[in-house]
Design a protein around this nucleic acid. Structure first.
Lengths: 345, 345
DNA sequence: CGCAAAATTGCAATCGTTTGCAATTTTGCT
DNA sequence: AGCAAAATTGCAAACGATTGCAATTTTGCG
């Protein structure tokens, strides 16, 4: 962006870098040039067309940084993905990237740019304040609460234009869009038990709020029906999950006949591991996942899973955010999960 | 961002919005406050610590928009995903999102922010000039050439800090990082034929340059070995691909015994369709994909595919871009694809 | 104590656009 | 022709930080 031309050279060359340059060529003031390019009705049609033609000829575009500063509006929404509990998790986690994709489409449609930031709270405590305080974004969407619930609550107290993808809890202060994870857990457990499972295992990390809620829902249903259920810690990063699942299956072989995976990614990895061990799904062991990613209909056998409506989630995040940008204090939006029965349970 | 407080209220409240506000409380000039927060050695240690403490106390952070304007540097890299040939393709296409994820990690590590823009060239011819001319980004990474080769060439002539994920062609002017698609196509055809296939089909859209190169490579090998190969147009969008593949399979049943899918996503959809028709892979029909996405090891049977090193691709894109930001005119980087033999061929 | 050098801090121009209000020009009517 | 109203355009402050250079203060030595 820095221009090495001296001032004198700049006066004489035809290169147009600023509105002031353009205005000089057009024989108007910079203010008129600015109004002309903005299509401001104050400017005479002939004058405006002349200025537009010169701008086209020189490939000139007004500097958006300067415009944002003057107008006090950036037109950019920040999307932060905190990786708190599992720093080995890549931003390329399938569910988050799918949601990000829908978010990008939704924001583009609303005329906003999307600025993506992956943050590691263990390395940068002030990741959210830093994003907000930078002044670079008009509002923030956080994808996943991770282990940052309190920090998000604190920031939400003083910053209205923020919405979080995650789990809504009674009494919380920040605005959330997310599935009813607890209900989803119930649906999963109900399905497993209805399919004949008598001993359940939950594969997931119960530290993150939303996974904890999924386990809690499953546990509640299992408890009511007198079916034992255990939680086997399984992390999201694929390399780690593979090893952990292998170990878990070794321990529980013959003792568990129903698995509730906290995510489809974990479920798919589990299916692969079961297949390698010659364990037949669902005859010998039933499996239910969570998310209903595109991959889930394509596994063999196709995965029974709890569907989150990701497109609706993205749309909800953007809709609520724009309302909050307009000054409204919106309630959280809890999306109902649905059981998608395929062939693994 | 606009503050409704009157000037007088602003003087009296302790809210600190600007460096000028902070400076006033600290009893120094705004310049000194700016230098203090930047850790500038010109500022006395005691003075700096006092200013830092007041900033912390008030949760103050310097406005990055103003800083960027003055310093003529944004610290943001623009990532554009043009969807030229298939406007129904979602930004959430698996390969692009996977690449995006790696890019985000790579850029974050280098201290840059990532601004994501999905563009539809049919609706906005000047999508690239507009991104660059906005002044919001220090450089641009384009993911996929789509049908925009000429436009990218034209822009590259006058804009150094741009790198494109795509196919490198002899004599082209813009800097590309991408796999040798032609070689990849050769590997795929070789594998199919070595596995006994005698009649090949290519499932993909041959309009995009990189897919055309994949088909060309396969065609070359098939031609040399006297094996017929046909191209069956299959688009990337999942809903469209499903229908097209179903129709193609109906047409070619019994006449084709080897399928080369332009992408893993197409291959996976194809596998599902074959399974539903009771066609055994690889005994009755062999399949090779392209990309080696995580899903490919998890299909049943696991997919034989041509692997693109996405992590290396992301790293290459960022490395070349930073070099070009530094003024260097780099050559394209062509990554060698590798055949990953699993069970579908 | 006086003075020169070093250190520290202040001033204000700068980045480039936007926009309220004043100045100028144009237009239309008597 | 003169004049008032309307239209158009210019001026310059503003957005908020950065930074070159000048002003001021501090320090140390003879």
């Amino acid at each position: 962006m820095a221009d090495t031309n001296t001032r004198d050279e700049e006066e004489s060359v035809t290169r147009v870098r600023t509105l002031a340059d353009l205005a000089k060529i057009a024989g108007v003031s910079p203010g008129t040039a600015s109004r002309a390019l903005a299509g401001n009705s104050l400017v005479n049609t002939k004058t405006r067309e002349k200025i537009e033609a010169i701008a086209r000829e020189h490939g000139f575009r007004p500097n958006q940084i300067a415009s944002k500063l003057r107008r006090q509006k950036t037109g950019v929404i920040g999307v932060a993905i905190p990786l708190g509990h599992d720093v080995r998790q890549q931003i390329s986690d399938t569910f988050f990237m799918t949601l990000l994709g829908y978010l990008a489409d939704e924001l583009t449609e609303k005329g906003y740019d999307l600025m993506l930031r992956r943050v590691i709270p263990a390395q940068d405590e002030d990741w959210l304040d830093r994003f907000i305080g930078s002044g670079m974004v008009d509002g923030v969407i956080v994808i996943g609460q991770s282990d940052q619930f309190e920090r998000i609550e604190d920031v939400a107290d003083g910053y209205l234009p923020m919405v979080v993808w995650g789990n809504h809890q009674e009494g919380q202060r920040h605005c959330v869009v997310g599935s009813d994870n607890r209900l989803g857990g119930k649906l999963a457990a109900e399905r497993l038990i209805a399919s004949g499972a008598k001993n359940l295992a939950f594969l997931g990390d119960t530290q993150p709020i939303e996974f904890a809620a999924r386990f809690a829902g499953a546990k509640e249903v299992a408890g009511k029906l007198g079916v034992p259920i255990r939680a086997l810690t399984t992390h999201l990063s694929p390399d780690r999950a593979g090893e952990e699942i292998a170990k878990h299956l070794q321990q529980i072989e013959g003792r568990v006949d129903g698995i509730f995976a906290a995510t489809d990614t974990i479920a798919v990895t589990c299916l692969k591991e079961l297949r390698e061990r010659g364990i037949e799904v669902p005859r010998q062991l039933k499996v239910v996942g969570f998310d209903d990613l595109p991959i889930s209909s394509q596994t063999a056998p196709p995965l029974t899973t709890v569907r989150q409506d990701i497109a609706a989630g993205a749309k909800g995040l953007v809709d609520l955010l724009l309302r909050r940008l307009g000054g409204e204090d919106t309630e959280s939006l809890v999306l109902p999960p649905h059981l998608v029965v395929r062939e693994t349970a």
